[in-house]
Amino acid sequence: MRSRFTSVLAPTITRYLSLKEALGSAYMVERNVMAHLDAFLAAAGHDLDSEILEQWIKTRSQLASGVRRNWMRIVRNLCLYRRRTEPACFVPDPSKFPPHHQVLKPYIFQEAEIDRLLAETGQLRPANRSPLRRQNVLLGLVLLYTAGLRRGELLRLTVADCDLLEGTLLVRESKFHKSRLLPLSGDAIRAIKVLLQERREKQLPLSPDSPLLWNDYGGSGAYSGSGFGEAIHYLLRSSGIRTATGRLPRVHDFRHTFAVHALLRWYRTGRDVQAKLPALAAYMGHVSIVSTQHYLHLVDELASIASDRFQKRYGVLIKQPNGADTRGGRS
Score class of each variant (00 low, 15 high):
V287C: 12
W56C: 08
Q55V: 02
R151W: 07
P87R: 01
V75H: 03
V8S: 15
T269S: 10
F109Y: 10
L143F: 10
Y27E: 15
Y27V: 15
K312H: 11
L206Y: 10
L37P: 01
V194F: 12
A10S: 11
H261T: 01
Q311C: 02
T146S: 08
Q135M: 14
H233Q: 15
W266E: 10
R151Q: 15
D49P: 07
L184N: 00
F254G: 09
L169F: 04
Y234I: 00
S226V: 06
G227V: 01
A191L: 09
L157E: 05
L298Q: 07
I289H: 06
R255L: 03
P321T: 13
G24W: 09
S288V: 11
G285I: 02
Y223F: 15
R271Y: 04
Q55E: 11
L206P: 12
M28W: 11
Q274F: 05
L141N: 08
L298K: 03
N215P: 03
V75S: 01
V67Y: 13
P321M: 08
Q203T: 10
S50I: 12
L155S: 14
R255D: 09
S224Q: 10
T6S: 15
R237N: 13
D216W: 11
H256R: 07
G221D: 03
Q110F: 13
A231H: 11
H297P: 08
G140R: 14
E153L: 14
I13L: 12
P94I: 00
Q110Y: 12
R180P: 13
I74S: 06
F90P: 07
T6L: 15
M28G: 14
Y107Q: 07
I241C: 02
K319W: 13
A88D: 13
R60K: 15
L157H: 08
L80I: 08
A244Y: 07
G219D: 03
D325R: 11
K105C: 15
R60Q: 13
P131M: 09
L143K: 03
S50T: 15
L37G: 00
N77T: 11
V273D: 03
Q55W: 04
T59S: 14
P94K: 00
G270W: 01
G148F: 04
A259T: 02
T243H: 11
R69D: 03
I74N: 06
T59G: 08
L132E: 05
L19T: 09
L17C: 09
G186R: 04
Q55M: 02
S130W: 10
P92N: 05
G229R: 04
V171H: 06
V290D: 08
S220W: 14
D187G: 11
G148H: 01
F176D: 11
T245F: 01
C162F: 00
N322M: 04
A119S: 12
A259H: 02
V91W: 05
L104Y: 08
D272L: 00
S95L: 13
A44R: 06
L181T: 09
H252I: 05
N77Q: 11
R265E: 12
R150M: 06
R116F: 04
L165Y: 09
E111F: 05
F254Q: 04
Q320L: 11
L248R: 06
L138T: 14
P11L: 10
M1Y: 15
T85H: 13
P278Q: 01
E51N: 07
L118V: 04
W56M: 10
R151T: 09
G229I: 09
L236M: 02
E153F: 04
I305F: 14
L236P: 06
L9W: 07
G240N: 02
Y27H: 15
F254P: 07
